[in-house]
Design a protein around this nucleic acid. Structure first.
Lengths: 241, 241, 241, 241
DNA sequence: AATGAATGAGTTTTCATTCAT
DNA sequence: CATGAATGAAAACTCATTCAT
């Protein structure tokens, strides 16, 4: 069901649940608390949702849909365009650009994209926090976002992100190292930053603007590393020591 | 109370609680489940602990103590030694090494340290997962590890880590950017990797060895970035764009 | 909440609790017992009351409200009327009547009042027993009826009983002796008689009628003593010897 | 077992139990609390006593023994002596004294006795409070002091108080009214006064001396009433109205 | 005489969920 | 749509008591 066409009470329930699940976690949140916070009766919650878990499912589904569409946009608008235009070539052992202009162009569009992703993450930080909390629990299979992300790098089915990249560049393949890097130094910091946003803001005494800049600076260093270090990551070989 | 001198049953309770809290989360874990898993009666749990929350507190305290000692060891053994020996100088705008040898030495000892930290993290991944879960909850103040970490970069009191570095190098100071980087691209990925270790291993079909190597590769890229990018981070200025 | 407008089940819970608290005492009464006696589920008890103690509070509040209104009625209808009509004058050292008729009138109205109070006490003997039991416990401040009674002899605020008497007779004042007498030979015997009513009836093999008469006879002797002995009590001086 | 020859720990347990039972009531007092207050372990309590109820029984037994001996002393020393000496004659409808001297003598010895009883009561107020609390509970048959008192006015067996009086004065008999008066305006106020002693002292801001005097004044009025009003009480007839 | 460890059987309380209206 | 009343099942926690040492 779409938020726009849904009854007001139903949306108030979802909003209240979002705040409470994010604050206390799903298990520690009582249906009564949601009802109170939403200004409705408990019974009405069961009119709109079949169970407490159903509210959570609904929230997660909304978020995943939104994230998927953002990711899809990014891949199609940036990477695929770059590859198709011939600026970028993902070789087995490195990202390869036709020239410095292409590289600059890529980095610039990546930067814009990162900012957009970060802003989205901050805007939906409560739901992301819920997702993070739930994904840490061993029980609930259907909230395993880790699995979803991982599969997105293998999923060859029509319309998938991976397929989109592979269609653009036949040689592209994810190395195990790249996956680890992507997840634990890409997704995880962004989701964590969003999840801890309010806490960290309070602790650090930074303004929204300063916090955003600060994180983007860090993220940028990582992205540069990834572009420069891509050679290493794509090769899946031990380095350093 | 120390584990070594504590009654066996008490330790079995703590172990059982660790596994269950990590798997289902604190709120979804029943005291009965802990009792069954530990092979004791519910009443005995209340003989040793005043409440379910008390078990959690105990676990977190143990972990924080251990982490603190590891961090202390690291700072004293590596960074402080390097500074004192004159190999390293943390300048306002960059890490500065006397020569390439010093830099190599520093990186090598950093690498060893990272491996040790990672191995510790993996070994205590269940408790780290609990810590991560609890630190995401807005309610409990005393589990706010984010705050602890943040304060460790400001705490000037005798015996603190920060004091140890500052004593060794008078000019050293944390920039806001460096803090953000440290936390969200340092601590967070390591803790998250440990927390998701079992899940990710299952999903990726990698061996323990492969997984460890893979993460260390990524971590290494970050650490190199930090060393090279230190100039940027320490300056606290906007970059890229 | 008023009994009349309250749901039937809620009143059944209060009635059941009254009987059980009076019989076994608050602490020895199990919520399950109340539920069974009231013919409701345990959970419903917690729907209407926040805790077992809340049921007790509710009961005590109801009783105190009722007692207060009875006492108020008595003072206004009897004592104040007598004083205003000029029949009675409470002097510093004795009750003073204009003539024998006034004294007879006062005693008669006092007798009627005593009977009414006694009948009320017997009717609410279960709750009085609870009150007596609870007032004997050192812990709960809010059940300290002794304090309430004592303060009612000092409370000069608008609408208080004491104020009503003082307004009618400017010279009136409670002596310490009068307070002790009132409490331990007035309130206490009546409340105790009501509390032990069923026990004593069984033991003595008297009918309700006989028991009532018997107690009223005794009470009458006391009241006569008080009227004749008022001189002594109001003077606060040692006697006998 | 006698206190003097009992181990110190056992007496400490009894003392602690006395204070706690008096403060919170038997049911609300935990064995652990007694152990803590007595400075012994729970297990030791079960070494000396077979159960929590056993501690109570022990306390009550001690008190009842003491009270019985006091009452016996009183009856033998005062009433029986008076009757035997021919000063007092308890007639069916009144107390009868040979002359004013006999009456004065009786009153004086009664006064002394009252003081002694009151002082005993105050000294053992904690145990009396327990007795009062327990006697109000419908359950425990063996703590029914009301029954014991009542029976003491009928008990014709060798060594009983009643027998002592009857032996001295063949015509003596308790009327129902006298029993009610004795209990509810004699025993009950004294026991209640002792039970509420500390509470009332705090509330009234009186010194021990003042409080004692005040209560004795009131008691004296009652006793005088009883002696003068004995005619009415012994006749068991309706009065007043 | 003394105790730390252990427990069975309860106790109060909670909570997601249902249902008649 | 909306709700007050109601509940079964289970949760956390308690407590008198026992026992091996």
């Amino acid at each position: 069901m779409n938020r726009d066409e849904a009854p007001d009470a139903r949306n108030r329930i979802l909003d209240a649940a979002t705040q409470l699940f994010a604050l206390r976690g799903f298990d520690a949140t009582r249906v009564t608390e949601i009802a109170d916070a939403a200004g409705v009766t408990k019974a009405l919650i069961y009119y709109y949702f079949s169970s407490k878990a159903d509210i959570l499912d609904c929230l997660i589904r909304e978020l995943v849909d939104k994230l998927t569409s953002i990711a899809t946009d990014f891949v199609h608008e940036s990477i695929v365009q770059m590859i198709k235009k011939g600026y970028l070539d993902i070789k087995p052992d490195r990202l390869s650009f036709v020239n410095e202009d292409a590289k600059d162009h890529f980095l610039r569009s990546l930067r814009v994209c990162c900012e957009r992703v970060l802003d989205h993450a901050i805007a939906h930080r409560a739901t992301l926090r819920i997702l993070l909390l739930e994904s840490l629990k061993g029980s609930s299979k259907h909230h395993n976002i880790l699995l979803k992300i991982h599969e997105s790098t293998r999923d060859n089915s029509e319309g998938s992100l991976y397929k989109a990249i592979v269609d653009a560049d036949k040689d592209f393949t994810y190395s195990d190292d790249l996956r680890v890097f992507n997840i634990f130094f890409g997704y995880v910091p962004i989701v964590s930053f969003a999840s801890y946003y309010d806490n960290y803001k309070k602790i650090s005494n930074l303004t929204d603007q300063e916090l955003r800049e600060s994180f983007l600076n860090s993220l940028w260093i990582i992205i540069n590393s990834m572009v420069s270090g891509s050679e290493l990551l794509l090769r899946t070989k031990n380095i350093g020591g």
